[in-house]
Design a protein around this nucleic acid. Structure first.
Lengths: 150, 150
DNA sequence: CTACGAGCTGGACTCGACTCCAGGTCAAGT
DNA sequence: ACTTGACCTGGAGTCGAGTCCAGCTCGTAG
């Protein structure tokens, strides 16, 4: 069942997931594919549509900083099937809390940067109202260490 | 000027910034300290209060994923002083846009996880309404590969 | 005097996540 | 028959960001 339906080569999977071929093989070695990849008689990998879906998920999780061991753990539980739902849920919840913490941290950084950008914008608006289209004049300005700009 | 005011040892800076001593020396080698660290006659590093402020900023920037070369670049401009404000502003703006992109990405991941958590919660609520306080019974459930749980 | 704790240096090591490479196989096209 | 392109393997290399270590120097306390 589900045999001649929609088989994909590693190249196709690479273009569709945005991962490199090397990374796909690497992920396979790392055991984060939902099920062992089939091979054709030439020994080449044969992927199915649902591998794409799984990999898309992996891409999102990786993009959010989930380390490969955690993804592998989740994958193994999913492979094991029934009875592992609680653990999978725990993994997801934990990663979610890490993500929200990370978002908070990023917002703190945004605040900092927003403040600094404001300072610089004000400064530049004061001192140089015109954008000055063409000039590579090197200004050897007074380098007086000012604690103003932190 | 500003000599005997508030000198700090590397150990104090480490505890106050949360960075390790090794990391502080590493950052110094990487050139992301606003000004060269002074030394006492024994050759030991002597930090000042404003180094803490600068390092706190570095910690925030690093925490938001800004790579060390970018921080160094910014630092060098800040060291160079007047005339580099435009460039500093550009660096900040660029990093800001990377941060917002990253936040978006994290939110997308949160959506995914939120969805999955919901699925698992519903599933567990259906099949096991009681939290079952004490039980390590290993349920060898039917392991039928279901595409339901992606 | 000796021991200790805190620092110092240069350089090696680790870790995570890829990325690259040499050398080989296979199927299809010319 | 031969070339090409896509794929294979095992293993080495890279990169970023620290982290660790051996062996040394101080200053102080017992």
């Amino acid at each position: 069942m589900t045999d001649t339906s929609e088989d994909l080569t590693i190249g196709q999977v690479a273009t569709r997931t945005g991962l490199s071929i090397d990374t796909l093989r690497f992920y396979e070695r790392e055991g984060i594919l939902a099920n062992p990849v089939r091979r054709n008689r030439a020994g080449r990998r044969v992927y199915a549509e649902h591998d794409i879906a799984w990999l898309d998920m992996c891409v999102i999780l990786r993009g959010s900083g989930m380390p490969i061991p955690a993804i592998r753990q989740y994958t193994e539980l999913a492979r094991a099937g029934d009875g592992t739902e609680r653990e999978r849920l725990a993994i997801l919840r934990e990663h979610r809390s890490r993500i929200t913490a990370q978002i908070d941290q990023l917002h703190r950084c945004l605040d900092l940067i927003g403040y600094k950008v404001g300072v610089y914008e004000d400064y530049l608006a004061e001192t140089e109202p015109e954008p000055e289209p063409e000039s590579n004049a090197e200004a050897e300005a007074e380098v007086e260490a000012d604690d103003q700009v932190t």
